[in-house]
Computed example of a mutant assay.
Amino acid sequence: MKEHISCILCGNNASPFGRVRERDFYECQTCRAVIMDPDYYVDRDDEVYRYETHDNDVNDPRYQNFVSPLVDAVKKEYESGKTGLDYGSGTGPVAAKLLRDAGYEVTTYDPYFERNPGAFLTNYDFIISSEVVEHFHHPAKEFRLLRELLKPGGHLYCMTLRYEDEIDFESWHYAQDETHVIFYRKETAEWIKEAFNFSGLEFEERLFILEK
């Protein structure tokens, strides 16, 4: 392993942390993110192939149940009719479907499966991102963009598994996925809140929720 690498989130030095399936990971002592060495990123075609193998049927009750914490969090905060963006909607935008069925206006965007430049021409009451932020190769750029797309007081709902010290990283199933390049601790979400000038932060189940 290298002595250190630059953190892909905050740019500071990240120190050796672990090795999973012959891929090196580092921990940033500033933002506390755990990141994969970019030398091990899979290429675009392999990444798309991996996503296409996901069985994301929007009508599958199990998949709907999986994203229910995200959908429920939006419903708790916003009345129907509000506008949202599903950022990284993937091959089966089930959260967007469930919210649309409940009367919300949801735009979808995905860099691989739904390149929709018009999605960036307006601002939203809320943005949802389900199992996406752990794939960010340039997370600082992504979080800055997402904040800009929110209306004042809007919320960004990030659904991802957070890393905690009691987890055995080398055997953690989340780290086995070669397309997962960054893992967030609670402290990482707190760093994001301060660094990108969000006004609030909450944690719910698999979510961290940032308020503009």
Rank of each mutant, 00 (worst) to 15 (best):
R100W: 13
D101I: 05
D101Q: 08
A102D: 09
G103H: 05
G103W: 06
Y104I: 02
Y104L: 03
E105Q: 13
T108Y: 09
Y109N: 10
D110T: 12
P111V: 08
F113S: 04
E114P: 14
R115V: 10
N116T: 10
N116A: 14
P117Q: 11
P117H: 11
A119E: 04
L121Y: 05
L121V: 14
T122A: 03
N123I: 00
D125Y: 00
D125E: 05
F126H: 02
I127N: 01
I128M: 06
S129Q: 10
E134P: 08
E134R: 12
F136N: 14
F136L: 10
F136A: 15
H137P: 15
H138Y: 08
P139H: 14
A140N: 14
K141P: 15
K141T: 13
K141H: 10
F143R: 01
R144N: 06
L145K: 13
L145N: 05
E148W: 01
E148L: 02
L150K: 00
L150Q: 01
P152N: 11
P152T: 10
G153W: 00
H155A: 08
L156T: 02
Y157Q: 03
T160C: 06
L161Q: 12
Y163Q: 09
E166W: 11
E166Y: 08
F169A: 05
F169G: 05
F169Y: 04
S171M: 09
H173D: 13
H173R: 15
Y174V: 09
Y174E: 06
T179Q: 08
H180K: 14
H180N: 12
V181W: 15
V181L: 15
V181F: 10
V181T: 12
V181N: 15
F183T: 13
Y184W: 12
Y184R: 09
Y184I: 13
K186G: 13
E187F: 11
T188P: 10
W191M: 08
I192G: 06
A195G: 13
F196M: 01
F196R: 00
F196G: 03
N197R: 04
F198K: 00
F198T: 00
F198D: 01
S199H: 03
L201M: 03
L201S: 01
E202I: 04
E202K: 05
